Amino acid sequence: MPPISCKVVVAGELSDHFDGAFDGLSLVRVSGTTELIGLLADQSALQGVLRQLADLGLEIVSVSTTQP
């Protein structure tokens, strides 16, 4: 199965402390939100990132995926 291209948007601008913390996704800060963008191995990896965000108490604004 090919990797999944994803973008997860969370409320708030995460600090540089979180760079590399989410399965290698890049952080892009955009006016009050943070976009986590990149490739994930599969749906299981995406669920892991979403669980990690929830465990940190971050508000998930949106999730979008496509096949690269």
Rank of each mutant, 00 (worst) to 15 (best):
L58T: 05
Q43G: 07
Q52M: 00
D55F: 12
Q52L: 03
L39R: 02
P2D: 14
M1G: 15
E59S: 11
G32Q: 09
E13K: 06
E35H: 11
S44I: 01
H17Q: 11
D42E: 07
S62W: 10
V30K: 11
E59Y: 09
Q47D: 15
I37P: 01
S15A: 14
D55H: 12
F18D: 07
S31M: 02
L14E: 10
P3M: 06
P2H: 15
R51A: 11
V10P: 02
S62I: 00
L14S: 08
L53H: 15
G32W: 11
G20D: 08
Q47V: 00
A21G: 01
S31K: 09
S31Q: 05
Q43T: 08
P3F: 12
S44Y: 09
L58M: 12
G32M: 05
S26P: 01
D42Q: 04
V49N: 11
V49Y: 10
A21I: 02
T65Y: 10
K7N: 13
V61G: 03
V30G: 04
G48K: 13
V63A: 10
T65E: 07
V49L: 01
T65M: 08
P68T: 00
V28P: 01
C6K: 05
E59P: 00
L58S: 08
V49D: 10
L53V: 05
P3V: 01
T65K: 14
L46Q: 13
T33H: 10
F18A: 07
H17G: 01
D23A: 12
R29C: 03
A45S: 15
V9M: 10
Q43Y: 15
A45E: 13
A11D: 13
C6S: 11
M1K: 12
I4T: 09
Q52Y: 14
S31P: 00
F22C: 02
S26F: 05
I4G: 06
G57D: 10
I4K: 15
P68N: 01
Q47L: 02
P2S: 13
R29V: 02
V61Y: 10
K7V: 08
L25H: 04
E13I: 01
R51T: 03
L14M: 12
S44A: 12
T66E: 14
V10S: 06
T34K: 03
V30Y: 06
T34L: 02
I60C: 02
A11E: 14
L27Y: 09
D16W: 02
G12P: 00
V9D: 13
S15W: 04
R51K: 14
A54V: 05
G12T: 08
P3R: 09
D19E: 14
G38H: 05
M1T: 10
S62T: 08
L39M: 11
V28F: 09
P2E: 14
T34H: 01
G32F: 12
L40Q: 05
P2G: 04
I60M: 12
L40V: 03
Q67P: 00
P68R: 13
S31F: 11
F22G: 03
L27A: 03
V8D: 04
G24N: 15
I4C: 07
D19L: 01
S31H: 04
A21L: 02
